[in-house]
């Protein structure tokens, strides 16, 4: 994709405003809440902290891209079954972080799950349901290691 946006523009703004992909959210705008999480060359990063000039030529995947994967289906089911979604604002970022974790570590312990989502704030759930959801996804998954 190409853009005329200035090189210091935030990747988050490009994704939401120019490309209209509004699954990626803005919470804090300073790296602390994880609502803006995306993959840059398959690595989990905060799009609010990335000037687009720094990542020219990189491959970006947002939650919309992840939604087309088998991994997402499993995570989605698990989040619903565990009641991991309340207002939903944190969820796209939370799911990106969960996917990143499971791709690297298909069988995480409770502590590893908490560490994996430690950059994602949720005001509603108190995290336990989310941790359960990731654990369930790991069980359902075994599959989940192949990331697109």
């Amino acid at each position: 994709m190409e853009t005329d946006a200035p090189p210091t523009a935030r990747l988050l703004d490009l994704i939401r405003e120019e490309f209209g992909l509004i699954g990626t959210k803005e919470g804090c705008g300073e790296g602390e809440c994880g609502a803006c999480s995306i993959f840059v060359n398959n690595s989990l990063q905060n799009s609010c902290l990335i000037p687009i000039g720094a990542i020219a030529g990189a491959e970006i995947q947002t939650i919309e891209g992840l939604m087309e994967t088998e991994q997402f289906k499993i995570l989605d089911e698990s989040y619903s079954e565990c009641g991991g979604v309340q207002c939903g604002y944190c969820i796209p970022g939370m799911v990106m972080a969960s996917a990143a974790l499971l791709s690297e570590n298909p069988n995480p312990t409770d502590a590893e799950i908490r560490e994996g989502i430690s950059g994602n704030l949720c005001r509603c759930t108190g995290y336990n349901m989310i941790v359960d959801a990731v654990e369930l996804a790991a069980k359902k998954g075994e599959v989940v290691c192949q990331k697109k």
């Binding site: 840059v40 989990l44 902290l49 972080a97 990143a100 560490e115 950059g119």
Partner: peptide, 9 residues
């Protein structure tokens, strides 16, 4: 330091 996404950048 911080969380995985910050450590990746």
């Amino acid at each position: 330091i911080a969380a995985p996404a910050i450590r990746n950048r």
